[in-house]
Nucleic acid binder design. Structure first.
Lengths: 203, 203
DNA sequence: AGTTTTCTGTACCCGTCAGTACATTCGCTA
DNA sequence: TAGCGAATGTACTGACGGGTACAGAAAACT
């Protein structure tokens, strides 16, 4: 399950190279559309290395990909995501999301697409690990709504869980549509709509 | 490309049986996760029939599936979807969407999941045909927003295209989350949020 | 230097799956 | 009842892809 007991600097570099390249390939063509040979060709490596660094095979590689992409995506939203407690911060958060996904080499969300493709596959635990990232992400939004309410910016009867769910859904729906429409516009519209919904609860 | 020059009633029934069963299998496990043998087993048929009725192979079958599911999904939203011109109609529409997806044998949206899985695959025209269904669906929502504005229920500076995009994104994001959370709640929250955004443009 | 461990490359195995070939049965019409 | 096309069943093929075996190169450690 775990890579060899220790990694030399060279080994760590190779492993990182594989993850980064595989992440982009999978984002572009999906897990099912990306073979281990593709990944090897994209990194100048072969199956030897792949199974050396990911003894669990493709499943373990995909797990590593999910972790990698989750960090990348969440980092792009910081520091706003962590401190959502005023209207200005929400706007900034929206801008950072738009900027991040607009600069990606491909449309769509690495985590969302992964979660969707893996849902209802053979291994439920596999899908669960990916959706755990989704839950964490959604949790940040819920905390933000909660902070807004605590600060008196939102009505007291606002349900942070529900509202965060709505914002999170809008975000991912917008990302799904960027995939099919090949444009950033749906994401912008979706986030504007989500913030309008948030504002409709203003105290 | 087209099935044999003519179909007997028996043949038409078999074809329909294949489409219906395949639709559910693909909804549950995705295109990549469903083999032609699976479909055969699920309908008591074999590859003989599959290629008899869909000479274009899996690609043609998937196209038929998309058409089938699109009609099914849009029909479930009628008549509200066609006549969105007052607040009550939007509420009814929301209810019909919730009822439909709540009664499905599996979570998620057949069209949305298909569009996401096919985006960035080998055949772009294949993905385009699926997303054409998405565009049509979105068009109904845009017309509804347009009607609301024409009726004076929304501010005149409201952009129906943008607003419909936001509502459509919320819908599909909610559906994506039903897949990962195995609950209808995210869809309900997403639609409530979308309608709140719509109401924020009330005249 | 020598030994051990990590790193890298290649060739192979085996299951799965889309697609094909072809034989057989069914159902209609003459 | 003969014949024709549609409908069905089965066995096969060829490619692809995940995974394994194993051998050689490169470091690290003593």
């Amino acid at each position: 399950m775990t890579p060899p007991t220790s990694l030399t600097p060279k080994g760590a570099a190779t492993r990182a190279r594989i993850v980064a390249a595989a992440a982009n390939l999978v984002l572009a063509r999906g897990v099912g559309g990306t073979s281990l040979d593709d990944i090897g060709a994209g990194t100048g490596t072969g199956k030897g290395q792949l199974f050396h660094y990911f003894p669990g095979g493709k499943a373990e590689l995909v797990r590593a990909l999910a972790d990698f992409q989750a960090e990348r995506v969440l980092d792009a939203q910081r520091p706003w995501l962590d401190t959502l407690d005023n209207w200005e911060a929400w706007e900034r958060w929206r801008d950072s999301v738009l900027a991040h996904y607009g600069s990606q080499p491909h449309w769509g969300c690495p985590i969302g697409a992964l979660a969707s493709e893996l849902a209802g596959r053979d291994d439920p635990s596999h899908a669960a690990e990916v959706s755990a990232h989704m839950d964490r992400w959604r949790g940040y939004l819920r905390d933000g709504v909660e902070r807004m309410r605590a600060a008196g910016a939102l009505h007291n009867d606002t349900d942070p869980e529900q509202l965060a769910l709505a914002i999170f859904a809008a975000l991912h729906g917008g990302l799904l549509l960027t995939q099919t429409m090949h444009s950033i516009e749906p994401l912008r519209a979706a986030l504007d709509g989500a913030l309008a919904a948030l504002r409709s609860h203003a105290a």
